[in-house]
Design a protein around this nucleic acid. Structure first.
Length: 464
RNA sequence: UCCGACAUAGCUCAGCGGUAGAGCAGUAGACUGUUAAUCUAUUGGUCCCUGGUUCGAUCCCAGGUGUCGGAGCCA
């Protein structure tokens, strides 16, 4: 049997008077002794549930009056202009089939009331049925599509870099081990260590912490590329901004410098925000109403203004002159702390800020050494409330400089192919990494990253 | 990992050295083109776990576990 998405009914794509069918889950039921029940049905297609008006003349009306939150139903009837307030159209039911009851309404975890996000994390399998997580889920989908569409429209190639890597030296954090060895009976080599030659990949292997190094290879052939996929960090990070498994977008452009990179980041973010504002008005209104008053205005401000750029050295001067007393010292050569980044984007700029050209000693080996030989062509995009949302750089394309920055001999050896890219037709190139869930939090105003991904993985918890 | 806070009904929380309450949800009824409906009644508790102090601990103390917030690491 064909059916209609609730979204298309509200969008006016179906004429009033048409016989329609919706399939979904009950949000609430209100029964009137006047002989009708109002059943709010949601199916995930849009923020609002549709109101199904059920007359007591239906043969199974006694069932209808037993409906509660969570029950699944198929309702069909005539689409009519609503007699009540609060919705444009509703369904005058001719049939309502109960597909699945709720076993024990008293203990159904998603009651028709406000729940804390903390509680809903313990009900991750049912939380998509709530307003907030339905909205986050649609936003996530829209944002992912907006990103792909942007890149596709700009001539980028989506490159699917591997999730399993044998390099443990990429320098972006602790790695999860991937192995098929029997942990209770590990094979040993002559030195007494674990003999990884007997492991599945015949060498130690891990889950990737970044697709960047691999995607650079494709960049130096396809010119404009990006990765989008899950990334894994085994850091013991217990914050509202970190996940052990998260999604990251990493564009990489050839014949490009740091300025091109920053311009790409800005254009990209603005495109995404515009698409979200256009396509997910209903959900954004919810976020603005219930989660963060500034949610919509914030995106509009970003879309309509130019990103503020500043050099790291200027940022240090601004912080020194701010008159604020920071817990951590501000000195040229030290990395900016959260409190410093917060001041810059939340108080000084009051919006996203691009900080560029950091001291070389606090940044990764692959970032291009500037002519001053003290700084590298790195940039961070800092966003209010989130902190670092993008980290990027122009890559070191000069073999000798790159090798001199690879202080670890094992790293140098393992990344022979990465160095090869500088031997065969090297070009200046640049890219960045953007945390997908962090961007979702920035857009929605949700403040915990565990609520931006369906089933969060964090230290001590891989439930569901 | 460090610092701090918290853990009481299905959920959100109050409370007190003498073993416990509210709102919501659930259930029953009333009322209503209702929409987080409203009104009346009502069910519901290992007060996180283990020790200790005490005549007596949900409350005080110690340890543990879990969660949250902040910091570091970073996206």
């Amino acid at each position: 049997m064909s059916s209609n998405a609730v979204a298309e009914l509200f969008a006016g794509k179906v004429a009033v008077g048409t016989r329609v069918t919706v399939k979904g889950w009950v949000r609430s039921r209100r029964t009137s002794k006047a002989g009708i029940s109002f059943v709010a049905v949601h199916d995930g297609s849009c923020f609002d549930p549709i109101q199904v008006v059920v007359p007591d003349t239906l043969s199974n009306y006694s069932e209808v009056t037993q409906l509660g939150a969570g029950c699944s139903v198929i309702a069909s009837g005539e689409l009519v202009a609503s007699e009540g307030q609060g919705q444009s159209v509703e369904i005058q039911a001719l049939e309502l089939e109960v597909v699945g009851w709720v076993d024990d309404p008293e203990t159904y975890p998603i009651a028709k009331k406000r729940h804390t996000f903390e509680y809903l994390r313990t009900q991750a399998h049912l939380r998509p049925r709530t307003n907030a997580f339905g909205a986050v889920t649609r936003l996530r989908n829209t944002l992912a599509n907006a990103m792909h569409n942007y890149f596709y429209g700009e001539g980028f190639h989506w490159v699917n870099t591997p999730l399993i890597t044998s390099s443990d030296c990429e320098g972006a954090g602790e790695l999860f081990r991937v192995s098929t060895l029997d942990f209770s009976n590990l094979p040993r080599n002559e030195k007494g260590g674990v003999d990884f030659a007997q492991d599945f990949f015949a060498s130690e292997s891990f889950l990737t912490v970044s697709g960047q190094l691999n995607v650079e290879a494709y960049c130096l052939a396809m010119s404009k590329v990006y990765t989008f996929g899950p990334t894994f960090r085994a850091e013991n990070s217990n914050t509202s901004r970190h996940l052990a498994e998260f999604w990251m977008v990493e564009p990489e452009i050839a014949f490009a410098n740091l300025e091109d990179d920053a311009a790409l980041a800005e254009d990209f973010l603005k495109h995404c925000f515009r698409e979200v504002l256009n396509q997910r008005q209903d959900d954004m209104e919810f976020f603005a109403q219930r989660i963060d008053k500034d949610a919509i205005a914030r995106l509009e401000r970003v879309v309509n203004s130019d990103f503020v750029h500043m050099d790291y050295s200027d940022a240090v001067r601004i912080l020194e002159k701010s008159g604020k007393s920071f817990e951590y010292p501000v000195t040229w050569g030290l990395d900016l702390q959260s409190e410093h980044e917060r001041f810059l984007c939340e108080e000084y700029v009051k919006g996203p800020v691009v900080v560029k050209n950091y001291p070389k000693d606090i940044k990764a080996f692959y970032m291009r050494l500037n002519d001053d030989e003290k700084t590298v062509a790195a940039m961070d995009v800092l966003a209010p409330g989130i902190g670092e949302i993008i980290g990027g750089s122009q890559r070191e394309e000069r073999l000798s400089v790159l090798e001199s920055r690879m202080d670890n001999p094992t790293l140098k050896e393992e990344l022979w192919w990465y160095r090869d890219l500088r031997r065969y037709g090297t070009v200046p190139h640049a890219g960045f990494g953007l945390g997908f869930e962090r961007l979702l939090n920035y857009i929605s105003g949700m403040d915990n990253i565990r609520d931006a991904i369906p089933f969060p993985r964090v230290p001590g918890s891989a439930h569901f």
